[in-house]
């Protein structure tokens, strides 16, 4: 049930392998990775600001809820902050449970919640200047889905 907030890159392969390898308690492991995208080919870099202290607390709370609701055997959340380039990995989640449905659902829940409930803010830098990434209403709507299921 680990949460890591860091500015240095992480090795997705190493993390996923270490998470899944040698497990006998869980039949299913799901991983998700978020990558800095540059759809228009104009992005120079992205800078992610966060709220030290609250970030770890919020991620831990989200992780605890996922663990309880989907009876997870284990989970991992890694989220970077600081400067990232197109193609860099921003974050990853991994979930382990007895069966795949719980592992998939818990991973989706973790993603939905950390998008709009963990204190991170993305700023994009292009040749034209910088802009804060606006939150999307569909990200907020995604949370209602999980509330209804409670």
């Amino acid at each position: 049930m680990a949460v890591r907030v860091q500015d240095e890159p992480f090795d997705f392969g190493v993390e996923a392998e270490a998470f899944a390898r040698g497990r006998t308690d869980a039949g299913a492991v799901v991983t998700f990775t978020g990558i800095v995208r540059d759809t228009d080919g104009t992005l120079d870099r992205m800078v992610i600001e966060h709220y030290p202290g609250m970030t770890e607390r919020a991620l831990q709370a989200i992780n605890d809820e996922a663990t309880e609701r989907w009876a997870l055997k284990d989970s991992l959340v890694i989220h970077r902050h600081g400067e990232l380039r197109p193609g860099d990995m921003i974050m990853m989640v991994a979930t382990a449970s007895a069966h795949r449905v719980n592992a998939f659902e818990a991973a989706e829940f973790l993603m939905d919640y950390l998008k709009s409930r963990a204190p991170f803010w993305k700023q994009e830098f292009t040749a034209d200047g910088s802009a804060w990434v606006a939150s999307k209403t569909e990200d907020e709507d995604a949370l209602t889905r999980w509330e209804k299921q409670k």
């Binding site: 709220y51 709009s116 204190p119 939150s135």
Partner: peptide
């Protein structure tokens, strides 16, 4: 995270920010 109507009596720290954009 809380509402603007929340009490700040005995609070040590209050933070203001735009909607979060993690993930």
């Amino acid at each position: 995270l809380t509402e603007f109507s929340a009490s700040i009596e005995n609070a040590r720290e209050v933070a203001f920010f735009p909607p979060m954009t993690g993930g």
